[in-house]
Amino acid sequence: MSRAPRTRTVWVTGLLLALLVAGVGSWYASSSPDGLESAAEQAGFADTAQDSATADSPLADYAVAGEESRVSTGTAGVAGVVVTLALAGGLTLLVRRRAAGAGTPTD
């Protein structure tokens, strides 16, 4: 076998990178309006935006309970990575199980 890293090593490295980006890097992200927000301002329809029904949720706007701090943003980011990993990993696992049992009529 060559010196290529194992899949597990790649996986763990990728996860650590994602946690680092969301948990630490996110604090340094630009807070300027994004492309759609600034286009909406420019074209004059920004005021038609409404608050999401989840605007008061504990992690709204990538902060824990609205607190603006490095820890708050980082915690929200890590939580998002973990939840996304669990949901997307779980969904693709289910799709795969379904594929594995494709020989038997299930529907």
Binding site: W11, A18, L19, G80, V81, A86, G89
Partner: peptide, 11 residues
């Protein structure tokens, strides 16, 4: 890798 890729994109 699918779940990991989604998590990375979120980050």
């Amino acid at each position: 890798l699918a779940g990991l890729t989604a998590a990375f994109v979120f980050a």
